[in-house]
Design a protein around this nucleic acid. Sequence first.
RNA 1: GGGCGAUUAGCUCAGCUGGUUAGAGCAUCACAUUGACAUUGUGGAGGUCACAGGUUCGAGUCCCGUAUCGCCCACCA
Length: 746
Amino acid sequence: MKNDISKTFEEKEKEIFTLWEESGFFNPDTMKALLKEDAKEPFTISLPPPNANGNLHLGHMCGYSFHDAIGRYMRMTGHPTLLLPGKDHAGIQTETAFTKELEKKGKNKWDMGREEFYKQCYEFCMKNASNARDQEKNIGLSADFSREFFTLDPRLTETVYETFEMMFREGMVYRDKRIVNICPYCKTALADIDTEHEERRGIFAYIKYPLVGEKDKYIMVATTRPETMLGDTAVAVNPKDDRYKEYIGKKVILPIQNKEIPVIADESVDIEVGTGALKVTPAHSPVDFELGIKYNLEVVNVIDEEGKMTGNIPEKYKGMDTLQCSKELCQDLDSLGLLEEIKNIKHEVAICERCKTPVEPVISNQWYIDVSNLAKEALNALHSGEVRVIPEGQQKALEFFFENIRPWCISRQLWWGQRIPVWYSGGKKLYDWLQENKGKTVKDFEKEFNLKVIGDGSIYIGENIPKEGAGWEPETDMFDTWFSSGQWPYSTLGGPSGEDFKKYYPTQMMIHARDILFWWSARMLMLGIYRTKEVPFKTIFLTGMILAPDGSKMSKSKGNGIEPQEVFEKYGADALRLWYYSDALPGSNAPIREEKIKGNRNFVNKIWNASRFILMNIDDAEVDAVREEVVDMETERIKETEVHIQKVSKYLSKYQFNLGAEEIREFFWHKLCDVWIEEIKSEIQDKEVGSKERVSRLTELLYILKQNLKIMHPFIPFITESVWQELVKLKLTEGILMGEQIQISE
RNA sequence: GGGCGAUUAGCUCAGCUGGUUAGAGCAUCACAUUGACAUUGUGGAGGUCACAGGUUCGAGUCCCGUAUCGCCCACCA
C-alpha cells in the first residue's frame, strides 16, 4: 500500500503556530530544558515594538521575518534564544491618531480631560496591541510572548525613571530654552511632524533701521513678520557682502522700541534674499535662535503661547494678535518714514496639521540631557568595532550623527506618555524664574509678579507627590518617546538588576528600518552604555523598505498600500518571507512584485509535492525498515548535502539572507528535485518492495529531505514544519522541526 | 545647504577582501511533458557593468571627476 498525503498544500499556519507555541521553544528558559545536548550561550534580540496606534503594515511584518530567521537558526544551533516582543506607546503619533479617532465620534480631548483621555487612549492601544500580536504570529514570529512589554508598563517605567533620576543627580539633565512651534488655535505645542507646509499669501516689508550716531544712514531689512521686530536683538549680514561691510560691529536703532542693537556678520546670511540684511529675533525664529546662541544675543520674548503680543513692548500692542500687530506696526513705521515698501508675496509657511493655522514659534523652557559624553562613548564603540552597522555605509552616517550630536530635548507637551517625574515646590514658573535669575529669591518672585507662593522653589524627582513640604506642582510634560524606547534592550529585561538581564544581556542584534537609525539605535547605544556600561547589541542590521510596485513609497494618502492580510491569504507567509529575504537587502528598497511572491509560492508548493512524492514511494511495508536503516554518510549525494548545509549556515551567520534564500531554492529545486529524485526514481524502478536496494536508496532520500527541511526552516518555517509533521504521522521521525538541531562545523 | 547611498539584461536586483567566458528571479522565444508539482523540464536570445579619467600584469569591483536618481537631517528672513 502506498502512503499519500493531500495533493495540494494548504498551509495550516494557525495550527502549526500553536504547535510551536505550546512546545516551549519560544521561551529560552524552557528551551534549555528541552535540549538534548548542552546549551550554548544564549542569543537575544529585542524586537522593535510597533506603534500601538494602528495595524502593522507589510514593512513591519517583513522586518520580523529577519528576526525570526536568525532566531530560529540560533535555536537550531543550540543557543537558548530570546526574541523579546513589545508594543510602543509612541507618544505624539498615538496622541494624534487617537485624537482623530475621538473627532470621528464628535468628541475632543479638552472636554475629556487628561485623566480620562489617558485611560481611553490606553484602551485604544491595548486593542491595537492585540491585533498587532496576531499579525506577528501570522508571519511566524517565534517570539516569547510571555515576556511581551508595553512601553508604558509600570515595571518598564520604573527603569526609565531611575535613568532620569541618575542623570539628574549627575548633572546631565537641565532646563533650557528652545523654540517650540505652538498652534495658537489648538493652544498646544506641535512637533515638527505635526506641522505641514503650505504656500500662503503674505507680505514682505522693507524696514529701515537707522545707524547709531550717523545721520541719514540706515540698514534696510526685509521681513515677512514685521511684528517680530519688537523682539529683535541684532541685524545680521554676510561678511562677504560689500554693501554692508562698513556697518559690521556698529549699532542700529531698533525702531519703535528705540533700542540699540548690534550689526553682526555671519556666513549663513544669504546675500540674495531680500536686502541681504537679516533681522534677528531669537525668541521667534528657529534660525535666529541659533544665531542668538552663536553670538550670545539677548532673547526678547514678544509673543505669548496663545499667539498674542506680550512682554516689554509699547502698551498699545500688548494683547494684540500677531496679524493685527503687524498691520498697526507697519502704519506706525510708515508715519515715522521708516517703512520703504510692502510687497505682496507668496511663501511657504508652517501650519498646524489639524486646523491649518500658521504656527507660532515661541521660546519655551524644556528639559534637556547633555549627551555629548555619551555620544563620544558610542562613537568609540563604533570605531573599536564593538558595534557595527549593516550596511556599512550607514555606519558612517551614524558616526557623523554622533560627531555632531546636540543636546537632547526630552520633554514633550503631550497628554499621552510617561510623565516626567518632577515636582516643583511653589510651581514650575517659579523654578524656571529662579534658574534664569540667579541670586534672586522667592520673595523677589512674589514682588515681581505680585503674588503669594507656597513653596521654596525647590524640585523633587519622583513619581509620586513628596510627603514633605507643601505647594508641590507636578510637571505635566511627558518624556520624548525615544527616551523610553531608547532603554528598550535592558528595560524589557527587568532593568540592570533584573533576573533576565543577568541571563540575556547584552543582546546580539538590533534589526530595524533605516529611517529610525538616529532616533532609535543611536539613543539605545548612548543610554545602554550609560546604564549598563556596555553596548546593548553588537550588530545593527537595517532592513530594506518595501515600496509600491512602481517604486514609489507606499502611503495611505496615495492609496497604493498593500494589506498584509491579502498577501497572506493569497500566497502564505512563507512565500512572502522568501521573497523578502531575496529582494530586500539591508539598507535598500524593494518594490513589491506580485509575480515574484507567486514564484516563491510555487517553490513552497514544490517542496510539498517533492516531499509527498518521496513519501509515496515508501511503501507502508517499508516504513519500519527505512526508519531503522543506518544512513550511509559516505554517498556523494549526502556529502554534497552536508556541504550545502554548511554553506547556508555560513550565509545565515553572516546575515546574508538573500544568498541563503537563493541557495536553498537552488539546491532543493534544481539539485534534489530535478536531479536526485529523478536518479533515484530510476535506480529503484524495478526493484522489489522491501529489497535492500530500495530501502537504502529511500533512506538516503529521506535523510536528504530532512536535512533540507532543517536548513530551510529558518527561512520558511510553516511549510517545512508541515512536512515534518507528515513525517511524524508516518512515524518516520518525531518531535517538532523547530526544535531540531543543525550541526555546524566551524 | 549638510550627510549617506545608488547607477550591472526588458523589469527587480545579486556579484564578499580586484583574477578565466559578468549571474539569479520574473518577463520573452523554441522544444518536451500531463508526470509527485497550483504545472514542470531542457535549451536559447538578451549586457561598452551611467559617462570621462587614473592606479594595476589585470577593474563591474579600488581612487578622482561629471551627470542623473534616491533616502535622512537642517531650513526657506
